[in-house]
Design a protein around this nucleic acid. Structure first.
Length: 211
DNA sequence: CGACCGATCGTCT
DNA sequence: GACGATCGGTCGA
């Protein structure tokens, strides 16, 4: 009798070395194609990362840590890489970021879209949606909602088993993604133009207009 | 299809 | 007291 395949057996959690690298832009590119996973009370939901944005710390006007700003909210950005930074946007949406680089260097990467892989039924329940469509995990607010992530998870260690990122051998090649300006950061002057958003080409989960 | 707008509240000034 | 690293609905062309 054939065992049902468990694809998650092939997943390998990313290590602290991945997160602690100095170039947040490079890490943002490499997160494309990786798998973002949450496991709450044994319930797994996961999806492949399709869109990211790099926030380059104290010199980036679009970053919450611009100018070395330290507040209760942004404190976790100053942790050593490999923790979650989650904050509330517009009073409604919880946005999930990956903190990178070393301690006291507040780099972060916003996960803006994933392609659902595991636990779609649970994601539908969390988002109160009736059927799977592109809006389930398109856009950063939707990603966090579908995966059950909220501001209480800010500061959680991504090397543990509650929220983590894994690789499964799937590779996004250089020709398969594009860099663009970031979304919703017009207030940050010339830094709004930096090509720090990375999207997988021709992937319908990339945020923006629906087709 | 695009432009606009309301929701909703923690955070910072 | 003002304002978001957003979303989804509505309205008009």
């Amino acid at each position: 009798m054939r065992m049902k395949e468990n694809k998650s057996l092939h997943w390998k959690k990313l290590s602290s070395d991945f997160y602690n690298r100095k170039n947040v832009v490079a890490v943002a590119k490499e997160l494309l194609g990786k798998i973002l996973v949450t496991k709450f009370d044994g319930i797994i939901t996961a999806g492949r990362i399709i869109e990211t944005e790099a926030y380059n710390g104290v010199i980036d006007k679009a970053s919450h840590a611009f100018g070395g700003r330290r507040t209760d909210r942004t404190e976790v950005m100053y942790c050593s890489g490999g923790v979650a930074y989650v904050y509330l946007c517009y009073g409604i949406h919880h946005l999930f970021n990956v903190v990178t680089n070393g301690k006291d260097i507040p780099h972060a990467i916003l996960i803006r879209a994933i392609k659902p892989m595991v636990g779609i039924d649970v994601m539908l329940k969390r988002t109160k949606k009736k059927k799977l469509d592109l809006t389930l995990t398109k856009g950063p607010g939707n990603v966090a909602k579908a995966l059950g992530i909220n501001t209480k998870h800010s500061g959680i260690n991504l090397l543990e088993d509650v929220i983590f990122i894994a690789e499964d051998g799937f590779i996004i090649k250089k020709k398969d993604y594009l860099a663009t300006a970031r979304i919703g950061v017009e207030y940050s002057g010339e830094d709004a133009l930096l090509p720090y958003r990375f999207i997988v080409k021709n992937n319908p989960y990339v945020s923006g207009k629906l087709k």
